[in-house]
Amino acid sequence: MPPVPSSAAGGGMSGPSTLDKAVGLIIGFIFGATNIIRYGPGPNGMMRTLGQYMLGSAATFG
């Protein structure tokens, strides 16, 4: 029996593309860097704070 084409398998939505995730990371970097420059890195340090902004934006956007 041949495999079922993916379009007919579930018909559901696919996940976010790599481009969506990359755009989310870039937006998070810009937003995070701007906030770190304005308000400082806080108690977590610059890299961890920037990483949290980037991952949060990528999860939201993508």
Rank of each mutant, 00 (worst) to 15 (best):
N44Y: 12
P5N: 13
P5F: 06
S17W: 08
A8S: 12
T34F: 11
S6F: 13
F29W: 12
P2A: 12
A33C: 09
G12E: 14
K21V: 15
M46W: 08
G51K: 02
R48P: 02
I36D: 01
A33N: 12
G56Q: 03
T34K: 02
T18H: 09
I30P: 01
S14Y: 00
M46N: 05
G45R: 13
M1K: 06
S17Q: 09
Y39Q: 14
G45T: 10
A8V: 12
P3D: 06
G24E: 00
I36A: 07
Y39D: 15
P2H: 07
A59Q: 14
G10W: 09
I36T: 06
S57L: 05
R38W: 08
Y39W: 15
N44R: 08
S6L: 14
A33T: 10
T34M: 13
S6Y: 10
S7L: 11
Y53C: 10
S6W: 10
V4K: 12
D20H: 09
A22T: 13
M46Y: 04
R48H: 07
G11E: 08
G28T: 06
G10D: 14
K21Q: 10
T18P: 07
G10V: 12
G62E: 02
G15C: 05
T49R: 00
Y53D: 00
A59L: 15
P41Y: 04
M13R: 11
I36H: 01
A22K: 07
S6C: 05
V23Q: 01
S57V: 04
G11N: 10
G56K: 02
K21R: 14
G42S: 02
G11A: 09
R48I: 12
M13Y: 03
L50I: 03
I26C: 07
A8W: 08
G42A: 04
T49E: 00
G62L: 04
T49I: 00
T18G: 13
S57D: 01
I26S: 07
I36K: 05
S57E: 01
Y39N: 15
P5H: 13
P16A: 13
G32M: 05
Y53S: 08
A9D: 08
S7N: 12
S17I: 09
P41Q: 11
N35L: 14
S17H: 05
R48Y: 09
G10S: 14
P41V: 06
P3K: 07
F61E: 03
G12A: 13
G45M: 12
G24K: 00
L25M: 12
G12K: 11
G42R: 03
G11M: 11
M13G: 08
F61K: 03
L55S: 11
P2C: 00
V4F: 05
L50C: 06
G42T: 04
K21L: 15
I27L: 11
I26F: 10
G51Q: 01
P43R: 09
L55I: 15
R48F: 11
G51I: 03
R48C: 00
V23R: 01
I26E: 03
S14I: 06
N44P: 01
S57F: 05
L25Q: 01
S7G: 05
